[in-house]
């Protein structure tokens, strides 16, 4: 448990502590769970997840599938009687899990990562390059096979091209670098 907790970090500082403060007003009514189209597939319901966050049980949270299964439909956010920013918190947990490299969320983290690398490089998403990179890094054959039929259909329609012409001259590299620097600065300030 020690080592697991060490990589996961404590809830007393930084982003996790801000997230915990954000759910302080939760009354455990379960409206979020009742609204969630993905609740059927979750090991912990959204209501339970917010309870765990209040208790600071980060190990439990990061080993659950709940936040990864959020498809950002915003129904819970719309209906929560306390007006809590729940969808945003789900995204925040995805970001924290990715930052910590937590193994059981590797495939989702890799997808986000591959996506952003693609955007950083090209300015606009080049879907072929993205999918190739994602599935190669994932190193599993199942998903690409499941998606291959679709890829072929899209290519036949001319919607996916092995190499999409680059239209944007934007330099997103600079934007990504500048954001990273600002965030490192803010993290540093928070820790000290």
């Amino acid at each position: 448990m020690m080592t697991r907790s060490a990589t996961i970090g404590s809830v007393s500082t930084g982003h996790l502590s801000r997230m915990r403060t954000a759910v302080q007003a939760c009354i455990q009514c379960g409206t979020c769970t009742g609204s969630c189209p993905n609740a059927f597939a979750m090991d912990r319901t959204p209501r339970q997840l917010w309870r765990l966050l209040l208790l600071g049980e980060m190990v439990e949270i990061f080993h659950s599938q709940t936040f990864i299964l959020c498809s950002a439909c915003y129904l819970c956010t719309l209906r929560c009687p306390r007006g809590l920013p729940l969808t945003e918190l789900m995204a925040g947990l995805k970001a924290e899990a990715a930052k910590r490299g937590i193994g059981c969320h590797r495939s989702s983290s890799l997808f986000y990562d591959s996506f952003l690398a693609n955007v950083r490089r090209h300015g606009r998403v080049r879907e072929m390059a993205l999918m190739t990179r994602y599935f190669t890094r994932l190193g599993r054959l199942g998903p690409p096979l499941a998606n291959m039929g679709l890829g072929r259909r899209l290519m036949r329609k001319g919607k996916l091209k092995p190499s999409w012409p680059q239209k944007s001259s934007a330099k997103l590299d600079q934007l990504f670098a500048c954001v990273a620097a600002l965030e490192a600065e803010a993290d540093g300030a928070r820790e000290s």
């Binding site: 995204a91 300015g123 990504f176």
Partner: peptide, 15 residues
């Protein structure tokens, strides 16, 4: 350029 889709928020809110 790309709006960030859902991937950016799941990585960094500022990004």
């Amino acid at each position: 350029t790309c709006c960030g889709a859902s991937a950016a928020e799941a990585s960094s809110p500022l990004l």
